[in-house]
């Protein structure tokens, strides 16, 4: 089985797996800088406009945010189990866990969609007719929309990756020993971790 998973230029599957993980870690460093740029902008503006940011952060729906935090953390668990069981060659457990991870991911996006609908209804989109008076509150919501949208995009990419792996594992076209499961898991955990930063910054900031 390990023969099929081995690609050029690698001589051993162990080394190839190491490379996939290492490459993904390097890519995640890049992702960290991507979000760090926006979070720096957030930090600068929050220092400049503390009251407006606190007032604006109180407008976000902390219930949806908390539910989504729970969903994402649990999905990381199932993803980790999927990656480990793929490595151990447990086909059924892998398939089930990948499926559950996808379900959690879709649930997250659904809750996020409901929240977006509510935000639009409450006129929390920056621009004319914005709900709050302080101009800087719009800056908070600019970051809110941007960060959550970019995060949701990462979720969607993660879902596509996990979905592809699920289909390939189901059909047997990708051997379970492939390093892709571990790599997809790393990516999924990273997207989860980004949310761990966004949740306090966007939902808890004005509520302490």
């Amino acid at each position: 089985m390990s023969e099929a998973a081995l690609h050029k230029p690698w001589r051993s599957l162990r080394r190839q797996r190491e490379a996939a993980e290492f490459g993904l870690w390097v890519f995640l460093a890049s992702e960290v800088m991507f979000f760090a740029c926006a979070l720096t902008g957030y930090a600068v503006n929050r220092v400049l406009w503390p009251e407006a940011f606190a007032a604006a952060a109180r407008e976000t729906n902390v219930l949806y945010g908390t539910i989504n935090t729970g969903i994402l953390l649990t999905s990381s668990l199932t993803m980790a189990v999927a990656a480990e069981s793929a490595r151990a060659g447990l086909r059924r457990l892998t398939l089930v866990c990948l499926g559950v991870t996808i379900a959690f991911g879709l649930a997250f996006l659904m809750v996020k969609g409901l929240e977006y609908a509510e935000d639009i209804e409450k006129h929390l989109v920056p621009g004319p007719g914005f709900r709050l008076d302080q101009p800087a509150a719009q800056i908070f919501f600019a970051f809110y929309w941007l960060l959550t949208a970019v995060h949701a995009l990462h979720m969607t990419i993660g879902l596509c990756l996990v979905g592809t792996l699920l289909a390939q594992a189901w059909r047997g076209s990708r051997p379970l020993s492939s390093p892709a499961f571990e790599a997809a898991g790393l990516y999924w955990h990273f997207v989860d971790l980004v949310w761990i930063f966004l949740y306090p910054l966007l939902y808890l900031a004005g509520r302490s």
Partner: peptide
């Protein structure tokens, strides 16, 4: 690896500002 993503985000910010009028 460490610099390019910062450019990506800042381009995203100006694009969002130009397209959707966010005030950053």
């Amino acid at each position: 690896v460490l610099a390019t993503p910062v450019l990506a985000m800042v381009l995203l910010l100006i694009s969002a500002e130009r397209a959707f009028g966010i005030p950053i």
